[in-house]
């Protein structure tokens, strides 16, 4: 899934990087939401992530959305000196529902940016408020279509019943998909249905455009934007599954970037109650190298020595 790099990285105290849309080929990636999916590396530190990124990036003629554009070596670029970097601290990323302890941890990291040659100020991207519904409507719509191929004819699971195509297809989906997947297929199917597509899917596309424009405007003033990666601290597996809306809302800080196809990175910036907190840096489209360069400097400046702590499971 689209946000399953930065947020898990943030929850685990490691680095997660989502490159610009099109820099890493999606050929071979099992599609969830094609226009939002982007493969990205997770690693112990920015340098590892940059090295891995250097390996997986590049033009692929099998992916029509692949950028035919050589951005150069990310890992070699890490050591470049940075100066006069303008940073926008995005107000909306510290909005309602954000854990205060996360807020202060991220702010500490932001202040440290000054020591590495960055100047920051608070800025606002008003349409980010609408990122969650826009993201989920688009993602679910695309997913409802992408997941239709699992019919058990060419590969995969097939329900063991003797009946006609319609019955076997339904039963296969019934048995093969989990509850949350079914919920998303249903919502996505709904959002594309004649009579509702205007209010949901098409509306979401328009809002996506507004969010993209918000970012464009911001990047005229700033080199990077920052905020927390997640509004909440890591939670237990399965804890939120019964409240889907609550679960979707946790993606509030990560999904705007996917809607706009921008590069973003999450790196650990502190610990609260023994749980890691991530700071997210976002750059303009195709500014991936600059982003990794700044992230690398910030990582060195923060100089966190996170040690994994083994805790007994439930």
């Amino acid at each position: 899934m689209a946000v399953s790099v930065r947020q898990p990285a943030s929850f685990c105290g490691v680095v997660g990087f989502k490159p610009s849309y099109g820099l890493v080929s999606r050929y071979g990636l099992i599609a969830y939401a094609c226009s939002l999916d982007q493969i990205g590396p997770i690693g112990k530190n920015v340098r590892d992530v940059a090295i891995l990124f250097d390996v997986i990036k590049g033009y692929d003629k099998h992916d029509s959305t692949s950028l035919n554009f050589d951005i150069g070596s990310a890992s070699a670029n890490l050591f470049n000196e940075i100066k006069d970097i303008r940073v926008g601290v995005v107000k909306e990323f510290f909005g309602e529902g954000t854990d205060e302890r996360i807020e202060s941890t991220v702010w500490n990291a932001v202040k440290r940016l000054e020591s590495i040659g960055c100047k920051y100020e608070i800025t606002s991207l008003p349409y980010l408020e609408y990122a969650i519904p826009a993201y989920y409507i688009i993602a679910m719509s695309e997913a409802s279509s992408n997941l239709a191929r699992y019919d058990g004819v060419r590969y995969g699971y097939r329900a063991d019943i003797e009946s006609d195509w319609n019955d076997v297809f339904s039963k296969t989906r019934q048995e093969g998909f989990g509850l949350e997947v079914k919920r998303r297929i249903l919502l996505g199917t709904f959002a594309l249905t004649a009579g509702y597509i205007d209010q949901y899917y098409l509306k979401a596309l328009q809002v996506r455009k507004l969010i993209q424009d918000d970012f464009k405007k911001a990047f005229k003033k700033y080199d990077i934007l920052v905020g927390p990666t997640s509004p909440v601290l890591p939670f237990k597996i399965g804890e939120k599954i019964s409240d889907p809306l609550e679960m979707y809302r946790i993606d509030v800080d990560t999904v705007p970037v996917n809607l706009a196809g921008l590069p973003a990175i999450s790196l650990p910036c502190g610990v609260v109650s023994g749980l890691p907190v991530g700071v997210q840096l976002i750059a303009d489209f195709k500014d991936d190298l600059k982003l990794l360069n700044i992230a690398y400097k910030l990582e060195r400046e923060l100089n966190l020595k996170l040690k994994p702590r083994v805790v007994a499971g439930d």
């Binding site: 226009s35 959305t65 519904p133 509306k203 596309l205 489209f285």
Partner: peptide
């Protein structure tokens, strides 16, 4: 999701693609 109703999109062009390609 209908939170989106609050956004005035009457002058927003329908952009089908996120990629500039």
């Amino acid at each position: 999701f209908r939170k989106l109703d609050r956004v005035d999109t009457s002058n927003v062009p329908l952009e089908l693609y996120v990629t500039p390609l």
